[in-house]
Design a protein around this nucleic acid. Structure first.
Lengths: 182, 182
DNA sequence: CTTACCATGTAAGGCGTTACATGATTCA
DNA sequence: TGAATCATGTAACGCCTTACATGGTAAG
């Protein structure tokens, strides 16, 4: 079956928990999945159509205050497909840190430039960290109320750990670049 | 100029340090850049041709034991282009953790499955970590001999920190899933 | 009244992977 | 002699982002 398209599985996964519109799916990606997966509207809507055609989801229209919503629901076939994918080993985790690229090649540009890149990286990280910490704490407190919470918590914890490591690294990198390093 | 293609910059960056063949470039990506950037031959060779056409690199042929090598060298225009890119703020760092996806949606599949995914993730991480630690230590010891080493060290240190966080997370996640968590 | 948000989609174009195709050398 | 490594490239195909296109509602 030649490597399943991941976005299919992400969306199927989200739909396995609750009915959603395309717009809401995008919001989940920008919040709960933010630190480990992302997608744009331009890929979400066509993917939803693909899911429909494949019989993995159905949709219905609803009006809410004059706004038309297309609400997607996962089908039994969709659940089955998702479970099959979930059971398979991970093919590949991918990272692409442009920040590290700019540091790796940054010796000619000098420490000032490197420190700027690190500062921006730190800022983004520090901005996202409180959300992650709060999410992890919330999920911890309710993990006995619904099996899924424990699994969400796992991923939030990952974010907390990794973002924490980012911040530590920023501090050490700054020390090294300013010569305050041992 | 509509967002520079990153692989151009990665390759230009590598060439700014030393002359390389396409094959060697691939090797650098599989070792030194491994934990923050990757690319396949199918993208490297066409990109090298693009660099040639753009005037950012030149190449010459050499024979070594009957093997034909095409060795690429960065041009002044290439260096200038690289420096301009280096000076611009990072547009986006990207991560895509399939492992976390499988955990996030993994409640129906149960803890056993989740633990398997974590075990494989841990294994890959533990396998790569010694290389990172050794690299960081080596670069630390020689960072006064050549400015670039300090910048390499920064990225190796990033790898050490982040992979360390991965391992910590694996341990905690296992505790949570096996109910040994507080 | 205007900005932000809710809501859905298409089109163009770029980027990248996989698979294919070829061929030499080195080492066990 | 067979496997691994060195070495270069193309073609098909898929996936995704950006930009475009549209239109309603809520809040300040």
């Amino acid at each position: 079956m030649a490597t399943e398209k991941k976005l299919n599985c992400v969306i199927l996964g989200l739909l396995s928990h609750e009915e959603l519109t395309g717009y809401q799916i995008k919001k989940r990606m920008d919040t709960a999945l933010q630190y480990f997966w992302g997608a744009s509207f331009g890929s979400i809507y066509p993917t939803l159509n693909g899911l429909l055609k494949a019989g993995f989801a159905t949709r219905r229209q609803e009006q809410e205050n004059g706004r038309t919503k297309l609400i997607y629901t996962i089908t039994p076939a969709g659940r089955q497909h998702l479970q099959a994918w979930l059971a398979q080993p991970v093919e590949r985790d991918e990272v692409r840190y442009e920040t590290l690229l700019k540091l790796f090649f940054g010796s000619d540009a000098g420490p000032q430039r490197a420190l700027e890149h690190i500062a921006r990286f730190r800022q983004k990280t520090e901005q996202a960290l409180p959300y992650l910490i709060k999410t992890e704490q919330t999920l911890r407190s309710i993990q006995d109320k619904g099996a899924a919470h424990q699994y969400y918590r796992l991923t939030a914890l990952f974010g907390v750990k990794v973002y924490g490591a980012y911040i530590e690294w920023c501090a050490e990198a700054e020390q090294i670049l300013t010569g305050k390093d041992v």
